[in-house]
Simulated assay, not measured.
Amino acid sequence: MSGHARNEDKPAIDTGRAVLIAGPTASGKSALALRLAEQAGGVVINADSMQVYRDLRVITARPTEADEARVPHRLYGHRDAAINCSVGSWLDDAAAALAEARANRWLPVIIGGTGLYFKALLRGLSNVPPVPAEVREAVRARLARDGIEVLHAELARRDPDAGARLKPRDQARVARALEVIEATGRPLADWHGEGLPPLLSPAHVTAVFLAPDRAELYRRIDQRFAAMLKQGAREEVRALAARGLDPMLPAMKAHGVPVLIRHLRGEATLEEAQMVGAADTRHYAKRQFTWFRHQLPEFRWVRPEEAWDAIAA
């Protein structure tokens, strides 16, 4: 049971509205969302591309079971690590979560750090058809056999725009672009403009980006990664590695996962793994600042301690 009041006791919610809380990892988004959902009669909807995987509770700092029991939470740990949860898949899941929220007159409180999820939510998404598993597996097998340079050269020949735009080291996007051509006979750019409409209007949302002091944020990231190891992150990654999944899958590239796998193989000490995992997370936080600043000007930047008043206003 959640801590929600009965329907007749809940405040009236404008069913067209939503609150969006974005920000870098470890900026305090979850605590803010939980407080808001409790007070406003809301549901917390995840917009973090790694927290969707059920295999990764500790290493991705998903809400605890106790927090999830206080108010409804959606799209946390609902996907298996063997699945590539694309932006389109998440958008389908988010549409269902928003429909449930409106039916129950819950305020949707959508939180996360994955900019592409928020961009799709507010701007829509190109309607690329699903790529059959056999096509994806064939492209990945060629990548492993022939190397990224060969696949990038093929992409440049078959889709010159994508070949020029994507760097050879960007294995995931090069493979994705080739998969779309193989599956549909059309380059990715052809599908742009034939997209899915946005689920929310920027005019009807309150959108904030939590922007803590950088030095304080990086200190919190380092502390949190150390805490994750004490809470069982290494054992969680050991169980994930034992599944023998494709290392190209998103869950296998979550911050801290690759270096902890190397540690479990004896290729890095635990101290080295902690140092690399925290550093990777700090670099990701820096990219989150840059991405949101340039891509989503709809978000109002606030210091975490000012966020509650900004949302209430």
Score class of each variant (00 low, 15 high):
Lys10Cys: 12
Asp170Glu: 12
Ala233Cys: 05
Ala61Cys: 06
Val44Lys: 02
Pro212Thr: 08
Asp170Trp: 14
Leu217Asp: 03
Ala211Val: 00
Arg35Leu: 04
Ala37Phe: 04
Arg220Pro: 05
Thr60Pro: 09
Ala242Trp: 02
Asp14Gln: 08
Pro212Val: 07
Thr290Met: 13
Asn84Val: 02
Gln295His: 15
Lys10Ala: 15
Arg17Gln: 15
Asn104Ile: 00
Leu155Pro: 12
Val205Asn: 00
Met1Leu: 14
Phe292Tyr: 06
Phe225Asn: 11
His4Lys: 07
Gly256Lys: 11
Lys119Phe: 06
Arg293Ile: 00
Arg176Phe: 15
Glu134Pro: 06
Tyr117Asn: 07
Ala144Ile: 03
Ala162Phe: 01
His255Pro: 01
Glu179Trp: 09
Ala211Tyr: 00
Ala207Asp: 01
Arg224Met: 06
Pro132Lys: 08
Pro160Lys: 13
His78Gln: 10
Arg136Ala: 07
Val139Lys: 01
Arg169Thr: 14
Ala153Gln: 13
Leu196Phe: 10
Val139Leu: 02
Pro250Lys: 08
Glu154Tyr: 03
Arg70His: 08
Gly28Tyr: 03
Gly277Asp: 06
Leu122His: 04
Pro160Val: 09
Ala226Tyr: 06
Pro129Lys: 13
Ile221Tyr: 06
Gly163Gln: 14
Ala61Asp: 10
Asn127Glu: 02
Thr114Val: 05
Gly42Gln: 07
Ser126Cys: 07
Ala69Val: 02
Pro168Phe: 04
Tyr53Ile: 03
Glu305Val: 03
Arg173Asp: 00
Thr290Asn: 12
Pro11Asn: 04
Glu271Ser: 07
Val71Pro: 01
Val128Arg: 13
Leu296Cys: 11
Glu8Met: 11
Leu151Tyr: 05
Arg243Ser: 09
Arg220Trp: 03
Ala162Ile: 04
Pro212Leu: 06
Val139Cys: 03
Lys230Gly: 08
Thr15Pro: 15
Gln51Val: 05
Gln288Gly: 05
Ala189Cys: 02
Leu121Glu: 10
Ala310Met: 04
Gly88Met: 07
Leu155Val: 09
Ala207Cys: 05
Ile311Met: 10
Ala22His: 05
Ala307Asp: 01
Leu32Glu: 01
Ala22Asn: 06
Val58Ala: 01
Ala278Arg: 04
Arg303Glu: 15
Ile13His: 12
Ile83Asn: 06
Met252His: 11
Leu249Pro: 05
Ala233Glu: 02
Arg6Trp: 13
Gly244Leu: 05
Pro197Phe: 02
Gln231Pro: 03
Ala40Ile: 01
Val58Trp: 00
Ala175Glu: 11
Glu305Tyr: 02
His192Met: 11
